[in-house]
Design a protein around this nucleic acid. Structure first.
Lengths: 197, 197
DNA sequence: TTGGCAAATGAACAGTTGTTCAGTTAGATG
DNA sequence: CATCTAACTGAACAACTGTTCATTTGCCAA
């Protein structure tokens, strides 16, 4: 059989990406087979190749989509000339964007090693662009005297690692609501960059 | 051929674990085959089963070794009654233990999902024991008024995520020596827990 | 009603997977 | 020197891998 009802391309395509994202986030790229993904979609393995040229492109597409939409969302975020306000905006933006997307975060951080060299370079470039946004805020605050940061590069890495952590364990029905998570993390971020040496 | 010189068991065993650790850290558990590991050891795949019952036990053993030696090392670390000093000791201990062991850190954080349920529970228990050490310090400091921490559990996760980050990118011949990394991170940690709300 | 075509199937391809085990080898032991 | 045995090989197993493609299906438009 084929095509049980109406045109399927606009349904199977997104379903494929959804299933792949979920399964890869759960078990890892190498541990998930195209047949498992096809099963989750309700289709045979061969049909997947109507939507994706190969498994590697599927992974790359998921990671690229995540990072480009992250950067696009950041572009529309309000910027502040005040470094403290800018850093708070970044902190809250980062949490609000990442907490509802644990699967994408998982891919972005755990599947880098499964990208081909060319694909890795492109994803890494996008990630650097995002990190640069934070580092610019830190540099501005350092120059204005608002922050006391020993090394903006290291501080960038430290803050992003800290702020990305909760997407591993945060649950909507968990002990703390998202607003409180935001408040807790913002207080820690502010302290980390304003501490006098 | 077999046994080219002397008894091999005490040589091949550790070499197996070394090769497996390195390869799994680099490519991931599911992406590394027993034959690849055997190649790195200089042996055929069947020989590995003289040292390990199966692939899953190999992964579990590597992770368990790492976490038990982490906990053992922490046991011998000096404890301070002063929360600030205790937190600094933990910070420096964590960095000193993890920075030279990037492969073990990679396994401990990325391969949890490849453990069988029983093995996962045991590894997760060890990790909780370690996290508890930090949380106890935070609780003591909160009660004594030395720290201003909104939630010790969240703060524990945040600090460990931040402090484990550098083992991804730190290099001995990198821009900053380990002592400076320690200083930078300790300043950020101190600021994060002492910031007034 | 007919033809066109998007969408999916099912079989096949050539490798690879973890694991087992009878057989081989070479160093140690008597 | 003969024997023992730890250590390893090589082959085999059944299952699974990503990917291709001729074929089939069933909706749509003419």
């Amino acid at each position: 059989m084929a095509r049980k009802q109406g045109s399927h391309a606009e349904i199977t395509g997104p379903r494929l990406r959804d299933a792949a994202l979920r399964l890869i986030a759960q078990h890892g790229y190498a541990a998930v087979s195209m047949r498992q993904i096809a099963d989750a979609v309700g289709v045979k393995a061969g049909a997947l190749y109507n939507y994706v040229p190969d498994k590697q492109s599927l992974l790359f597409g998921l990671m690229e989509d995540h990072l480009t939409s992250l950067l696009a969302a950041w572009q529309t975020a309000p910027v502040s000339a005040d470094p403290i306000q800018a850093l708070e905006a970044f902190t809250r933006f980062h949490l609000r964007f990442h907490l509802p997307r644990p699967d994408q975060v998982s891919l972005a951080y755990m599947e880098l090693r499964n990208l081909s060299p060319e694909n890795f370079a492109r994803i890494e470039g996008l990630r650097r662009d995002y990190e640069a946004a934070l580092e610019e805020i830190l540099q501005a605050g350092q120059q204005s005297g608002a922050f006391a940061v020993a090394d903006t590069r290291v501080c960038t890495m430290a803050l992003i690692a800290m702020l990305t952590g909760p997407s591993t364990w945060f649950r909507d029905d968990g002990r703390l609501p998202q607003a409180e998570i935001e408040a807790i993390y913002w207080r820690m971020v502010r302290g980390a960059v304003t501490a006098k040496g």
